[in-house]
Design a protein around this nucleic acid. Sequence first.
DNA 1: AGGCTGACTTGGCGTAAAACGT
DNA 2: ACGTTTTACGCCAAGTCAGCCT
Length: 914
Amino acid sequence: MAVETNDKTSLPHDFGDDDGPVTFKRYTSTKKKQLHSELTKSTSNSLDGQSNRQSSNVPSSNGQSSSAPKGDVVPSAKPSAMKSSVGNSKPSNSLVNPASVKLPVANSRSHSLNDKAKSVPEQKTSIDIKGETKFIKHCTNDYAEDSEDEEDNKPLSARLKVNSNNDNKATLVVAKKSYQDSDDDDDIPLSAKLFRNSNVGTSSGNCDDPDEKKLISKVQKELQNGSSASIKQEKPSTVPSKRPLDNSNSMHSQAKKSKVSDPAASIKTKQVSMKCEPKVEDDDDDDIPISQRIKKSATSADKSSSINKKAAVSADKSSSIKKNLTKVTKVNKAGKTAFKKQPKKLKKSGKGSDYSKSMKFLPGSGDGQKKWTTLVHNGVIFPPLYQPHGVKMLYKGKPVDLTPEQEEVATMYAVMRDTDYMQKDKFKENFWNDWRKLLGRNHVIHNLKDCDFTPIYDWYQSEKEKKKQITTEEKKALKEEKMKQEEKFMWAIVDGVKEKVGNFRVEPPGLFRGRGEHPKMGKLKRRICPRDIVINIGKDAPVPECPIPGERWKEIRHDNTVTWLAYWSDPINPKLFKYVFLAASSSLKGQSDKEKYEKARMLKDYIENIRAAYTKDFTNKDITKQQIAVATYLIDKLALRAGNEKDDDEADTVGCCTLKVENVTREAPNKLKFNFLGKDSIKYENTVEVELPVYNAILKFQKEKSPGDDLFDMLDTSKLNAHLKELMPGLTAKVFRTFNASITLDDMLNKGTKGGDVGEKIVVYQHANKQVAIICNHQRSVSKSHSAQMSKLNEKIDELKAVLKELKTDLDRAKKGKSPLKSSDGKTKRNLNPEALEKKISQTNAKIVKMQRDMKTKEDLKTVALGTSKINYLDPRITVAWCKRHEVPIEKIFNKSLLEKFSWAMDVDPDFRF
DNA sequence: AGGCTGACTTGGCGTAAAACGT
DNA sequence: ACGTTTTACGCCAAGTCAGCCT
């Protein structure tokens, strides 16, 4: 599986048979995506165990009353505690359910996995890396000591550089400097901040720092201010409870405390401690040979995962703290400068402890489990009311009077003139049906055909134009104004930690834009009001004020077994809900994300047996078992989604279990051609070679069926998942996608990275990323300007080639002592010596090569979306570890939001392998 | 057992914002 | 400094999957 240039889908574990070409064609105008399925639920019972402990104290549903059971949480915060916890964690690991689990085979792995496993130990390391690794380990041992180590304080990228040969002094310097400046984080590059934070000691997580505490309460106040409400709830129970736990126990905290007065000092300390942390966590199994890991996992509940969890937890916490800080900082920028320092402190200190606290209640999958103890937020923000423009549309050529409500909907339709929806009868029909109701029976408008929305369309275009024209200052002012209004909704305080809220804006009314041939496209999505919204909040937290006078929320709930802050039911499909959740950067999300990847990693230990089992069942006489085997094979090999049943009022798309006979064509002797619309009506087209028994089984499943019949008629996702669960605890169809994506990345990065400069390494990464995107069928539509851009690039290359030619001529002449010819536009050129000319020539050549490479990449990626897999399928630790090993700044791969989202993965050991 | 509901993850697109080139 | 191209992000649709109910 080396990195080839072609687009085959070969998964690492491929049996080696699939060379089928993968074609990614875009479906007509609609997009097509394919499948995916990840998984995720946390498995964990063991986790629960932990959480339960905590929660046990809490009788009330929200647990606030119990207030953070200090004891429980605390231990983790302490260094020593951490270690021990790590050890303990094994048993608790939820993922592994000893009883039900079948032991994975520790040994042989056929397929590429094998190789990987073997290679792992060897790969570990380059010299520099070793240095770092060692250092880390060292830290582990002495927990509180090396505060001095400057390295630790440096951002990862800086450190890497240093280690390497300091190529980039500049960066390093900057980083250091900012670091030392204790106060101003604002000047520090984001990545640096993140790294810092993440690295920051576990220990520190505590809020022992008085400053921190203050900060927290301040934050809370801020939050609350917004709403007027007051924060009481948290004070007694929440904030205090949590923080104390962490603080009190941890050694760190003590250290910190002593330094409290000296910000810089405290920072250092914290950082130091942080360093240690990584060790603890990551240590986990990374240094252990895979085979051992396997054993471990097999026996006890996957120690690694448990460990990881912990690590994750601590990391998360730290991250959350960081975030808090960051947030605070931002806020400060906006106007409250005073807080800056404090926030920083928090961040630094935070890592471990906060996280762990929250960790305990694992979110993840746990259903029915406690996800939080205290929850404070300000509810949601509503879109502005409709402002009538008064522009009259025409009906049979004549202007028509519309009420504001009618006009609003007419405008929604008018502004969609340039979209593909206007070509769809279904869209128009649905729109008309809904709009007609608003118009009423006796309205002059009797049909859509005679409507001319042009005046409204034109008005809208001119408004857009006006908007564009406003100056940057005005834009800035507007933006600030908006921020001001939204700020209070942007944050929630979860167990005393300030976290970003994901989508706090209620969806505005509009016409439903379903994907593919959605039967409901064009229907009016009505405006959502407070009376539609259910708020979920801590029992003691103030209920957000209803922003619309005279109205009230539909319901207030205090359900701490869920993570949503609010929901309303989807006006298009009342059976569905629209939720307001925390942002991806929150520790709650981070934690479940980590659990997802741990589960996928666990699959690595089971996959061989699973494959052997389904291979055996390809010929099982029990047709259900046979179908399960074939379906599992397809999900494993092709990363298909599970394929739940769908209603008639949804677009007609399929996944594995819902494949129709017509979606698979046999091509003798052993190829299968897949052609169907997957999630989001993204077309999946792929021809693959399969094992003969699979081919024959498909033949059998298709026999005597009509094209529209279910291929797997004995199967549905619940049966399939139930079966998978017997093979590995928590295993579901989507885990295979995560597994295949991540292991492919890991494999390709490790095989494909040869050296070269950062740019070349990034190409390797992108290539691997692309393979994953292809496997997962993550497509995107070709941008409208793609061909124009390509031809532009071609022109540029041609120009450069012309320049090159001229330069060569000049060189020849120069060698003979002649002056250069005039340039094509008639100008006289400077008389350069041969050396200078040669230099220019080589520069130009390099430029051409680079442009050609860029062009190729661009063409290559025009239909492939790399982002989706990065966000959802690739274990960030693979990327972070690879960046560390190869001295690639992480920011070259992860953008700001990914850095935040994956803050839990930043302190991974450089030797980490998926 | 199977359908339904609820909660949460995954997904592409459009546009705002940032980066880049001139 | 400005216009253009590239990237990031918000939006919200559409999946997955567990647990409940019947």
